[in-house]
Amino acid sequence: MSTVPATIHLGRLWGIRLGLHWSVLLVVLLLVSAVGMGRFPLAYPGYDSWAYVVAGLVAATLFMLSLLAHEMAHALVARREGQKVEGITLWMLGGLASLKDRSPSPGAEFRVAAAGPATSVLLGVGFLLLTWFAVVVGAEPLIAGVPAYLALINLILAAFNLIPAAPLDGGRILSAALWRRWGDRHRAAVVSTRVGRGFGFALILLGVVTLFDGDTGGLWWMLVGIFIVVMAQAEQRQSELGAAVAGLRARDVMTAPPDTADGSVTVSDFLHATALVRRHSTFPLVDEAGRFQGLATVDRLKSVPLAERAHTALREAAWPPSEVPKVEADDPLPDLLSVMGEQADGRAVVFDQGRLVGIVSPSDISRAMVLHGRGVQR
């Protein structure tokens, strides 16, 4: 499961990196406007404007925390199932947990997918109990209205996510069920993503009809529908590619030995004396002891200002080791595909017992598929 780039990094929780995309600020403003200045004044009249704004801010903040809890549930269960979890990013259309490899079994996929909606249901029930408590103790109607709204929105979130259409959680549950029944992960994923695309197009159509009726809320349905269609298509392509390279390992597709470079050389010297005469555009950096120091790509080096190239070392301008996707030589190719494209211009480096033995680029993947006679159906 991929994620969107985080604009604001919030640190880590239980070892999982948390981030916010800038679009979350837009969502908070929209929620404060729609809930704090629209829903609450109609449902609970008689308060000052500032009270509605504060109530809207509290509701928006707790809603984003609810989304975080939903995604955190996915991430924690995935980690318990043996999957690698890169991080969680909250953005305009909710949250995305970035999982770096595929579920090992239909049961694991089901448990990971079901964890999110289950958490949303628990939150909805919890907010309902909080609403009941606020009413019992005689709290102001507006105060009781905040948890009531959050109970409703969490239950709606759970119900929406349980729709059996990828990339929604319900689509992953459907995929897990079909995978168990047919014993074919790829076939199950394709069916789920096709249902997801159909559902997405239905939401787009609903949005268009709603707009023609004069309701601007149709724009939101169109946006959600477009997101579902795009994500479903991406998941289908990923599944098809995974099926095409099944049985291959990183060592089968890597370029070996890798064309390395000395990280202490300046960017200027490297671009003029080395990069122009070598056939590669990406170079792993190693020190005298053979230790990996980063990954230099020509595109990244060209971004160094001309005035700084003569006194900037390659390792200072290259992708740092922590941001370069790494795999072991015997890792299955689908696991390699799941980490490629995060950083380092779509490249990954391959190690064998701690020793750098190869590098993989998108062209290496394409070449391997041709050589092994494997095609991806379109």
Rank of each mutant, 00 (worst) to 15 (best):
349 V>Q: 09
261 A>E: 11
109 E>N: 03
305 P>L: 13
10 L>T: 07
9 H>P: 06
124 G>R: 05
89 T>G: 03
92 M>Q: 02
65 L>A: 14
361 S>D: 13
71 E>N: 02
291 R>F: 13
331 D>R: 10
345 D>L: 04
49 S>N: 10
243 A>M: 08
188 A>I: 01
209 V>S: 01
116 G>Q: 07
1 M>V: 05
23 S>P: 06
33 S>W: 15
243 A>D: 15
227 F>H: 08
148 A>M: 12
314 L>T: 05
11 G>M: 09
51 A>N: 06
306 L>N: 13
163 I>C: 05
305 P>E: 12
89 T>S: 01
28 V>D: 07
291 R>P: 07
12 R>M: 00
322 S>A: 11
327 V>Y: 05
206 L>C: 10
338 S>F: 13
327 V>L: 10
338 S>E: 14
240 E>P: 05
253 V>Y: 00
286 V>Y: 14
367 R>F: 01
294 G>F: 14
258 P>K: 12
117 P>E: 11
364 D>W: 14
308 E>R: 03
189 A>Y: 05
279 R>N: 12
362 P>E: 03
40 F>Q: 13
256 A>P: 04
7 T>F: 14
330 D>T: 15
114 A>V: 08
310 A>K: 09
56 G>Q: 09
334 P>K: 09
325 P>L: 12
312 T>G: 05
169 D>Y: 06
124 G>E: 09
53 V>F: 14
112 V>K: 01
120 S>H: 03
159 A>V: 14
204 I>S: 00
33 S>I: 08
207 G>R: 00
371 L>K: 00
313 A>F: 07
173 I>H: 01
30 L>R: 04
331 D>E: 08
165 A>I: 15
114 A>Q: 00
194 R>F: 12
312 T>D: 11
256 A>H: 06
19 G>E: 06
336 L>V: 14
13 L>Y: 11
218 G>Q: 10
103 S>L: 01
269 D>I: 04
25 L>C: 15
205 L>G: 01
164 P>W: 03
72 M>D: 02
111 R>E: 15
257 P>E: 15
